[in-house]
Design a protein around this nucleic acid. Sequence first.
DNA 1: GTCTATATAGTGATAGAC
DNA 2: GTCTATCACTATATAGAC
Lengths: 187, 187
Amino acid sequence: MTMKHENTRELIVEHAQRLIQERGYNGFSYRDLATLIGIKTSSIHYYFPQKEDLLLAVVRQYQSRWHAAIQTIDPALRADDKLRAYVEAHRRAFCGTERICLGAALAAELGALPGCARQAVQGFYAANEAWLTDLLEQGAREGSLRVPGDLRASARALYAALQGSLVSARLFEEEKRIDDVLPAVVA
Amino acid sequence: MTMKHENTRELIVEHAQRLIQERGYNGFSYRDLATLIGIKTSSIHYYFPQKEDLLLAVVRQYQSRWHAAIQTIDPALRADDKLRAYVEAHRRAFCGTERICLGAALAAELGALPGCARQAVQGFYAANEAWLTDLLEQGAREGSLRVPGDLRASARALYAALQGSLVSARLFEEEKRIDDVLPAVVA
DNA sequence: GTCTATATAGTGATAGAC
DNA sequence: GTCTATCACTATATAGAC
């Protein structure tokens, strides 16, 4: 997920993403961000006149990169192994950090976000839930995953559990909590 | 002498709780709170000199009340019915509001909270996970709940799923998402 | 494209009158 | 116990020099 950056704009988005994941959208300022990078706040305003603009740029890049990361999961795998790879991608992204998923961080402070953010975060959730729905469909067909009842409802519950596990893993500093969700669905 | 409100302190804690659930700890100010209640910010400082003091009071009351709510669940019930009652308690608390669980709201912005908060939120999570562990133990004994693998890990996953469902239920304005978690564990 | 300087408003917090 | 008044600081944001 982490790429190299030469220009200031990318640096800003990168650090803003991390700060939102660690502290939330209202938990950091342009000053925090500028100091961290070693520039002035006015330089951030040059690229992102309003904080809302920065937020949207961060969400778009995050969703784009996460989409790309999921695409790397071998389509030939069995559904349970795909799920393990999916969980593993989350472990790589969050273990050893103080971060949670950007989507979860934003969804948690929904009432304090600029209105445009809701739709963007919904899109991120919907994309992941759709991918998991396909995964569960395959797993039910193969018999490699346990899918009680509706496919989409199971996918929603699974994604909610994974997101919630990332939150509590950070809270308790217990990285293994990311795996808690697996036994419930792996046959 | 003149006490317009029955108990200003309680009013403050009550509204502060709601604001944190809706916007997060860094998403509201003493001014927001004061305007909402119809007092001045200095009156809030009289009861809670620092915002951190208010936060701790809110968490303690919330945990206390939630503990009391869970205690009302009939111990004679079968485990699956206890779980339905537990989910129902969440529905009563959050449906029709723009709120999520206070614990989840705080855990999501952990990096931007005063240090004392982490322990308090951990305590809240631990209490719920312990209650769910007992529940799953009963359910496994009765055969009324499906518990794959470790009891405590299943309880952690279940609580994470429930918390995550509340977050996404608000995000999508789909209250039924609270029920998504049930089919995975009810036998 | 980055800076200095500044505008305007909001923040948590305190002192002291009543 | 609540208020007015105010503090020092921080927030987002803008204007204009270089």
